[in-house]
Amino acid sequence: MANFEEDWNRLDLSQVRDRGSKKWVAMMLPEHVKMLRDYNEEIKKVARPDLNEFDYEAIQEQIELAMKRNVEIKIKRWKEGEFLYNRGTIQWIDLTKRTIEVEDPFRCFELKIDEIVDVTILE
């Protein structure tokens, strides 16, 4: 019995090259495969962070400070169940459209204020 335990402890499972779910796809209907893919995408989604008044104030202060200093920032956004990150300098804030215009070395783009969950100044 001890010999079996020693062999089991020395077993290196990283060398096993299994095909994973590929071997089962041939036996499944296309509808089932689509449902499994949709399910996998759904469980990867993250719930929107619940921000309070202090969080919004901190975000606003960081944006104002970055705009005054004209420094690069990292913006963390939540959109459709996932976090997206952008870097650049703030060029303009449009409160009527509720957007921020950000410029990075390659382009200018607009971000919705309502999607922003965190702002970090990069110096």
Results as ranks from 00 to 15, higher is better:
D12P: 06
D12Q: 09
L13E: 05
S14V: 01
Q15V: 06
R17P: 00
S21N: 11
K22W: 14
K23S: 11
W24R: 01
A26R: 03
M27G: 10
M28S: 03
L29N: 06
E31T: 08
H32N: 05
H32A: 05
V33M: 06
V33A: 07
D38L: 10
D38M: 07
D38K: 06
Y39P: 01
Y39F: 13
E42I: 02
K45E: 03
V46D: 00
A47N: 13
L51N: 13
L51H: 09
L51R: 05
N52L: 08
F54M: 10
D55M: 12
Y56M: 13
E57I: 13
A58P: 00
I59V: 12
Q62A: 15
I63M: 07
I63H: 06
L65D: 08
M67K: 06
K68W: 09
R69S: 10
V71A: 09
E72C: 07
I73T: 02
K74P: 04
I75V: 09
I75A: 01
I75W: 00
K76Y: 11
R77M: 12
W78C: 05
K79A: 10
K79S: 13
E80M: 15
E82D: 08
L84E: 15
Y85N: 09
N86S: 14
R87P: 01
G88L: 05
I90C: 05
Q91Y: 07
